[in-house]
Computed example of a mutant assay.
Amino acid sequence: MFMRIDHIGIACHDLEEKIALFERTFELTVVAREVNEEQGVKEAMLHIADGEGGGSYIQLLEPLSADSPVGKFLARRGEGVHHVAFGVPDVSQAMEKIGAKGVRLLDERPRHGSMGSSIAFLHPKDVGGMLTELVQAAEGR
């Protein structure tokens, strides 16, 4: 079902500071920046590598407000890994298959994700405490 790890989402207080850290330390390059009002974040995608199933990235997330999901995460846990995202060929199909196995879906249907992707989240309590995202990459990504 999974083709690759699409990205690791990292919550941070200062997006520009963390971008500079990842560029300087790991020589990663920002390939996309977005403000996602629906999810309440400013984000940057930093390219790691390309593989058979597509690219892998680090996603840096800065909350737009303290009451957004990432803002609440930062208040509870501080900066660090927020979620792991797995690339799938068809997010709707993956949702149906995983949901049929008793895993709760946080999304009823796919929604807009980074770089034009379609995404859905799984309930962390049903997958070992890890917020898990399913990602169907946009064509050509």
Rank of each mutant, 00 (worst) to 15 (best):
R4N: 15
D6L: 13
G9C: 06
A11C: 10
C12K: 00
H13D: 15
L15C: 11
E17N: 07
E17G: 10
I19P: 02
L21F: 15
E23D: 09
T25Y: 05
F26G: 06
L28P: 04
V30I: 06
V30F: 08
V30N: 12
V35D: 13
N36G: 04
N36K: 07
V41R: 04
K42L: 03
L46N: 12
H47M: 09
G51F: 03
G53Q: 12
G54N: 04
S56L: 01
Y57A: 03
Q59T: 10
E62N: 05
L64W: 12
D67F: 08
G71Q: 01
G71W: 07
G71E: 01
L74K: 00
H82C: 08
H83V: 11
P89T: 06
A94E: 14
M95C: 13
E96W: 07
I98Q: 03
A100N: 05
K101C: 11
G102S: 01
D107R: 03
E108W: 04
E108H: 05
P110R: 01
H112W: 04
G113I: 09
S117G: 09
S117E: 03
S118H: 03
I119A: 03
K125T: 11
V127L: 05
G128N: 12
G128S: 10
G128T: 04
G129A: 07
L131D: 14
L131T: 03
L131H: 04
T132W: 11
L134I: 06
Q136C: 14
A137W: 09
E139K: 15
R141F: 00
